[in-house]
Design a protein around this nucleic acid. Structure first.
Length: 607
RNA sequence: GGCCGCGUGCCAGAGUGGACAAAUGGAGCGGAUUGCAAAUCCGUUGGGGAAACCCUUCGUCGGUUCGAAUCCGACCGCGGCCUCCA
């Protein structure tokens, strides 16, 4: 099996992923600024990181252990496969930072202040949900409010790290709780001559000196000479005063009048935007690390993997590299901070840039509120290669929902038939090992999720398997199948990898459906779309209410609908199909899709 | 102006030097089923041929190669960054 290869933004090549310790991979993702609800573009990036971390944890994944020399010689290292943990950390940026961040946070209005104003308006308009008690003047309360909402959305979308963080809060550190560490790191940077203080007491500013880090620009291609060339008159003279180089960026700003402020050696003020990630990536991935004393040998990487949206490449990640290497590496020259840089691209909606004015701007909860299941949103957001501009469409969302329904249909049949030998029943036996191999191979080559989905289809969207399982279970026709599917439930989450592997092995040896059951779990542990926590399915689409004539599926029964169904039944009984069709059209106009079922009953769904 | 990613069939989206007329899903078409639908199942979807096979396709134009959707160059288009943004 192939070693995981990814496109590394730092080297601009697809290369083998070689964590320092293959049994414990450190992964840092730049998280949300919690001053508003996260939109689907944010989640596309977070979900790409989630799929990657899930794959790295899968027993199907092999990571490189060779030295970088062997990686360079296209001589693939044998790799490591086996128990592996990913320490995945995502920060919460709850420090405001500026809306007009011209020079790294000195101008404009604080984001939390903007959010507060928006909340205040919502409160006045009565748009805030009942029971929400946020003081729009308190930035910390605002941040907590949106942080809570972010975590709710993220959990429903299956972001594993957010679920883990409920038990281990260190995995989602808050910037406001690490200001002390930031101050320590800034002090180290000043001591090493990589940062300097300008201005008089009362208005002091600490800048990072980009000239102290020769590799500045390696990540984005914006090297210092090119930056100067490209500077299109956007640099305001006002903010340049005191800087040694125009690209120098803010580490600390003394400003006692700011709405969020902390004591520091440079007076009361607030930290720059980039410094928080340098601190939290270390603190989050290694609880024992102390940023005030930590030293990383030579130019070695500090963490294995770092992800963020493509807009983060410059300036944010470029600055992070410079700060972290200068603060922690013995030899900052040539250091890269993270071994692998992973940057998912932006999302288009209906072929256009997402924007509020175009009306194609969606938060995750907008979609949930419209009745879309989180798993479908997840699949739609992960299905396109992370380095392409994905196109999110209503049609695609419907397709993804349908696909998941097919997968679950097979899963329900297979779990019920798991002890049956199926070779004898139907004579069909898909090559499970081949399918799993294909699944892993595709993901291993720069995280080809669409290819992995196709592999999943090979098992979970396979009518031959379904037919065989139906035979094994004695399900004879479509009606019986429907009844079976309504009864049969699925477990809330995937089996752990060990049990899944055990099932595959047992099933294979005994020639039972258990092999497929295990394989579906192993794959869904990465994709995360089939087995979702029961409480996630809040759309109620599986709830069935049975009345004398109707089977209301995910729909509240209403006397009006019942009446029309009865009229239609009578019309059909006297073979008045014109009237019957008219009633169906009327129901359709009301938003219901109907389907004649067994015993003269009619299934009613939302269109 | 500088730096970076992407560009595939009706749609979405794989494929990264030969097994490619191109995975997988959707949509369409034909069939089974249905009063008609829906749902489900089977087949099919560049052109020609009964068929081995031949011709034209993977933004455009060139190049490398025995051979390219796949590698290189230029151009065009989309997206990102150079100001906060996933």
């Amino acid at each position: 099996m192939n070693v995981l290869r990814l496109f590394n933004t730092m080297t601009r090549r697809v290369e083998a992923f070689e964590p320092r310790d293959p049994e414990r991979v450190t992964f840092y993702t730049c998280g949300p600024t919690v001053y508003d609800d996260a939109h689907i573009g944010n989640f596309r990036s977070f979900l790409a990181a989630d799929v990657l971390r899930r794959f790295i944890e899968s027993p199907m994944c092999r990571v490189g252990v060779g030295d970088s020399e062997s990686a360079r010689r296209a001589d693939p290292p044998k790799g490591h496969q086996g128990p592996r943990r990913v320490v995945h950390v995502m920060n919460i940026t709850d420090v405001g930072h500026m809306t007009d961040d011209a020079e790294g946070g000195e101008q404009g209005e604080d984001r939390m202040a903007v959010a507060g104003r928006r909340l205040l308006e919502a409160k006045k308009a009565g748009k805030l949900a009942a029971g929400v008690d946020v003081d729009p003047k308190d930035p910390r309360q605002i941040a907590r409010y949106f942080e809570g909402r972010f975590k709710e959305d993220a959990k429903r979308l299956g972001l594993k790290l957010v679920i883990e963080a409920e038990k281990d809060a260190g995995l989602m550190p808050r910037a406001t709780e690490h200001v002390g560490g930031m101050i320590k790191v800034i002090e180290r940077l000043i001591a090493r001559g990589c940062a300097y203080v300008v201005g008089d007491v009362g208005r002091r500013v600490v800048y990072f000196s980009v000239q102290a880090f020769p590799a500045y620009g390696a990540l984005s291609g914006n090297t210092l000479d090119k930056l100067r060339e490209g500077a299109g008159g956007r640099v305001s003279a006002e903010n340049q005063s005191g800087k040694r180089h125009p690209a120098d960026f803010l580490l600390w700003k003394e400003d006692p009048s700011h709405i969020m402020k902390w004591e520091s050696p440079w007076g009361e003020g607030y930290p720059g935007w980039h410094i928080e990630c340098s601190v939290m990536s270390v603190a989050g991935t290694d609880a024992r690390a102390d940023v005030s004393t930590m030293v990383v040998p030579d130019a070695e990487p500090i963490i294995d993997l770092h992800s963020g949206g493509e807009d983060n490449i410059f300036p944010h990640h470029e600055c992070e590299v410079a700060q972290s290497c200068c603060a922690f590496n013995v030899e900052p020259r040539g250091a890269t901070y993270a071994k692998m840089w992973f940057h998912p691209r932006f999302l288009l909606v209906e072929g256009e840039k997402m924007s509020k004015s175009k009306g194609n701007f969606f938060t995750a909860r907008d979609l949930f509120a419209k009745g879309h299941e989180a798993a479908a949103v997840r699949l739609e957001l992960i299905k396109t290669h992370y380095r392409s501009n994905a196109n999110f469409t209503e049609q695609g969302l419907t397709e993804s929902a349908g696909r998941i329904e097919q997968w679950r249909k097979t899963a329900k049949l297979v779990v019920a038939a798991r002890d049956h030998e199926w070779l004898a029943v139907w004579g069909i036996r898909p090559d499970v090992a081949e399918i799993l191999g294909r699944f892993a191979k595709r993901l291993a080559l720069d995280l080809n999720v669409a290819g992995a989905i196709a592999a999943m289809d090979g098992l979970a969207n396979n009518t031959a398997i379904r037919s065989a399982a139906m035979s094994a279970l004695g399900i004879k026709d479509f009606e019986e199948l429907q009844a079976f599917l309504a009864r049969q439930s699925l477990p809330a989450g995937c089996m752990d990898a060990r049990s899944a592997m055990q099932s595959i092995e047992n099933g294979r040896r005994r020639g039972t459906f258990e092999e497929i059951w295990g394989a579906i779990h192993l794959m869904d542990a990465v994709l995360g779309c089939i087995f979702v926590p029961i409480e996630e399915d809040t759309t109620g689409r599986s709830a069935v209410v049975e009345s004398e004539i109707g089977l209301f599926i995910g729909v509240e029964p209403s006397p009006e609908v019942e009446q029309k169904l009865r009229e239609r039944r009578d019309a059909r009984a006297r073979r008045d199909f014109a009237a019957s069709d008219r009633l169906r059209d009327e129901l359709s106009a009301m938003g219901y899709a109907i389907k004649d079922a067994k015993d003269g009953k009619v299934e009613v769904r939302r269109k």
